[in-house]
Amino acid sequence: DSLSIHQLSAQGELDQLIACLQKGEQLLNRPDERGFTPLMWAAAFGEIAAVRYLLEKGADPHVLAKERESALSLASNGGFKDIVTMLLDKGVDINVYDWNGGTPLLYAVRGNHVKCAEALLARGADITMEADSGYTPMDLAVALGYKKVQQVIEAHILKLLQR
């Protein structure tokens, strides 16, 4: 039995991933049945070496899955700041939104991932974008009682006002 390229990416099985891609380049951006590419699986499960390797091989970081999920949102949701930074360095849309209006910043806040929220805010994530339910990142931080994330957003707003 062999694992699919999506499973190899998610499990960070780099040697097998390299071998698998050597057999078939076209697998690099192969979406699964919900539209998730190997890069998205690696980003969702925090496999930084796999993310780095797939990007080096030319994996497309801009691909959206069927419900507009993105590698950046998956990494932000998981709190994987280094992967968030890698994807932002590839110029992905920092304000991409999906099926419930979720943006990378909203997922970072929802997961109480302070470092991810800081990284996204530092790179200009839009703090006014609301989820379909009308919650902004600040609303969400307050509603969930995530004080540190709330402070990070407040500090960012102050910085914007001072400019």
Binding site: H6, F36, W41, L74, N100, G101, Y135, L140
Partner: peptide, 21 residues
């Protein structure tokens, strides 16, 4: 050897469980 499979990634509903804003 038993292969362990990860379940497909997914993104949660942002405001599940919160009152309507």
């Amino acid at each position: 050897t038993q292969l362990s499979l990860y379940t497909s990634p997914s993104l949660p509903n942002i405001t599940l469980g919160l009152p309507a804003s």
